[in-house]
Amino acid sequence: MKKISFRSKTLFLALIPMIYLYGLVIYPFASVIYYSFFSYDIGGTPVFNGVGNYIQLFTDPQFYRTLGLTLSYSILAVGAEFLFGIGLAYLLVHISRGRSVATSILILPLVMTPAVAGIIWRIMFDAGFGHVNFYLSLIGIPGQKWLIRPTEAFISTVIVDVWQWTPFVTLVTFAGLTTLPVELVESAYIDGASEFRTFKDILLPRIRALLYIILFLRVIDTLKIFDTVYTMTGGGPGTATTYMSIFNYLNLMTFYHIGYGCTIAAFFIVLMNVVVTVLSKKAGAALFAA
């Protein structure tokens, strides 16, 4: 028997995940596209519908509302996370004690089961006995109808995202800053820059690549947001927090429209591909270099 060459063995090893990938991503993707042209409800049979589903999608006001909501959610949450997160990293850099306590606490939201976090926040946002309103009342802010009114519900979901992911921005930024040489800070300091100026003008630009990567990850993940929001608001009240993934899921599992669900999925997958391609120009190279 001919011995299999080492080269083909390693090729094979590397290809296993690829085969998996093709089997479990490409095929489903093809099938999403396929069914997106069918009118097909759970329990029924697929009936070819041409671009009917797409026409329905692009004339659905809820679809545009969802797109807008998802975008606003992403921009608001990521923006807040970067401001707050980098601010916290600034504090962490400038204190001498208690860093390990701080980082331990910051880990918590990151590992907390998101579905469960959604439920806990749902209780905390309760208009009657929720702690959020109670603490707000202590500083003189009247109680809000958090999960009951649309705008408030939207803000609630952003707050939860900020709670869950700001630590990520902080810890990555902090880790990046600690790898910088001390001479960099000393030099800027001798050159006459204030601590804040040094941080903003000298140190942050140095970890630019890292910041791109986390910006990229945060934008992608907020656009895909599902679990925390779904368990906290279920996409409501009404459709106030029905973001893209939730919109997709609801059409499929609540309204039983497989064909239409696939149309939304197809659109969403293509959209995300575009976003990833555009954003990964800078972040991708940085990731490979890391």
Binding site: P28, S245, N248
Partner: peptide, 25 residues
């Protein structure tokens, strides 16, 4: 590089949407 990016790419897919055909399948 392509193989690596494609593997990494899974991480960026809207997985709830990709999983719909899994459901059908």
């Amino acid at each position: 590089g392509t193989i690596l990016s494609m593997i990494l790419g899974i991480r960026f897919l809207p997985i709830t949407s990709v999983a719909i055909p899994f459901y059908i399948m």
